[in-house]
Design a protein around this nucleic acid. Sequence first.
DNA 1: CTGAAAGCGCTTACAG
DNA 2: CTGAAAGCGCTTACAG
Lengths: 359, 359
Amino acid sequence: MQGRSKEQPHRPRRQRGGVRLADVAAAAQVSAPLASRVLNADPNVRATPETKARVLEAAEQLGYVPNIAAKTLRQQRTGLLGLVVHNLSSPIYLDLLQGARTEAAANNYFLVLGDVDELLTDDEAYRIFINGKRVDGLIVQGGHGEFDQRIAEIARALPTVIVNAPPKSTDTVAPLVAPDEVAATRMLTEHLLALGHARIGLISGPHDSPTNLLREQGVRDALAEAGHTLRDEDTAHLTWSAEAGRAGLRTLAGRWENTRDRPTALIGGNSLIGIGMLRAAAELDIAVPGDLSIAAVHDTWISEHLVPSLTTVSLPLREMGETAVRLLLTDTPRTQRTIISDPPPRLHARASTAIAREH
Amino acid sequence: MQGRSKEQPHRPRRQRGGVRLADVAAAAQVSAPLASRVLNADPNVRATPETKARVLEAAEQLGYVPNIAAKTLRQQRTGLLGLVVHNLSSPIYLDLLQGARTEAAANNYFLVLGDVDELLTDDEAYRIFINGKRVDGLIVQGGHGEFDQRIAEIARALPTVIVNAPPKSTDTVAPLVAPDEVAATRMLTEHLLALGHARIGLISGPHDSPTNLLREQGVRDALAEAGHTLRDEDTAHLTWSAEAGRAGLRTLAGRWENTRDRPTALIGGNSLIGIGMLRAAAELDIAVPGDLSIAAVHDTWISEHLVPSLTTVSLPLREMGETAVRLLLTDTPRTQRTIISDPPPRLHARASTAIAREH
DNA sequence: CTGAAAGCGCTTACAG
DNA sequence: CTGAAAGCGCTTACAG
């Protein structure tokens, strides 16, 4: 939020002379309170059907729309929910945003966008957004170890739902909506095992990141059940980016020179990593899936358009967005619980994985 | 917006007992109006520095944050701008959103997200969003021929900026912020010409779509200057999707069987089309760039990670978002003009284009 | 320049 | 059940 000028720029003016409730009431020859009650479908209203019709018709006729600011001021409710995400340019979280937006709209709520880094580091942005009563509730993308303190503070000030963060054993400060990470990589691994792969590697995000821990767990679990293990030399842990996926595969491939002692399949910790892995394979002349099967977590729009198309497992991001909004709109007490979102992860088998070839 | 229930769900309640201006004024032993003026840095205030300091300190001490709803009601200003986009899941427009969000934040404005289709087809969404005085202004993504009527209606009700639509010869209903489409494809074409390509084809969106017309124009212009032309048999016009790019190249390639009479380079009307073209080439065993150079409009995050990495031309989407917001916040009269956004398109030469090979 | 008063438009205790 | 009155919290003509 650098460069914010303290002086206020010119602001667009609202055109005056909108139709007010009082105008509707006058036109319908009833009092304003009664008009309000009729328009809000108050069940206690005993006015005759004719009267009600008169009110509704007057509102329609005049094009009446309640002034939100007045309503908000009176009801202490904004009709807005904040969605504070980390990296808007990642294709991964767009589905979450879409789900949240749709569910909000279905309840006559709108979404206001915030940026995690901005909100957690910029005090002014924080004050305006959080304390300024801009929103009735907040959906914040978790997984920021360093900022847990700040999120706790936010949750105390405002109904908050954390989304897409790994469940913590530590005290939860707000409800959490998360996908079943372990099941996702387990599914991917079982898919590869079923294709005859016995030695399967993993290129993922930071080794100690909670998300990686869960995803790695899924791989280990599935391998263990099949009597295999995840070998250290078959893993690389860098960041969650395509660049890291590329570097990771290059590192592993460096260990494979002049030897057939190597994995026949590799799992990417997320779709960006998977994309980078495909690229590295092409650069290194490793045939996919001929020499190496590749699969990754997250099914984004690009997966099926890559060459080869990428086998993935999809997480219910859209549903998580919906659930987060629903939680905010219906969960009276700030229940502190973790919701592992439905539906479970789903496998999308594509061209990047195939039956293991004898080496 | 299907499935919206008319009954209102439970709404999160705002915690009571916030600090009001009156509290600050009392603590600082001044009147509420004076406190308001000091806090808003009214230059006409002549209070002693001590008094001002007392007010500011009291506000700080009490953690005072003005109630936005009250401010809005009084000032007829929401501090919100609507951003109504067409397809949030397209990677192309995220930059525009980012630019708009950042510029808005820099002016203490926030962005409320809307969906074009929803707003243009759902009357209730329209009423609440547009007439409900939810936002001070609107940025709406254009290029929807069918909905021009509705957008004109919106522009009459609310300061509006249309973004990323092709300039129309017809009456403009609101300021338009657009990229230099013609320059973009011209640049791409000149890049290919410089590589020695003489016969260059185009796979693009609907033939009569205004955006396509401009992009096609750029290709034609550059070819004409070099003494070449765009041949009908070297073009395909479907939709703006990856699937269309794939189908387009398949169609063209069908014409190339058993002949060397074919283009050596192809331009994709947008990056999705380019991605589909790369895929089709791989499926058809057309070497890129060996047999065919491919380049496309829009530089998205994925471009450099494709195999081969895709030559593109970037449009100033981020800047367009910024400009649109700035226009809304500073342009007092609703000037009706078209702004071709700076900076001009920029070429990103990558592995998918190379020197033309003799056929 | 500053303060008392009004008012933005709505909803809801409260009294009838 | 309905209406008159109050009040949400702020800013700004207006009077002094």
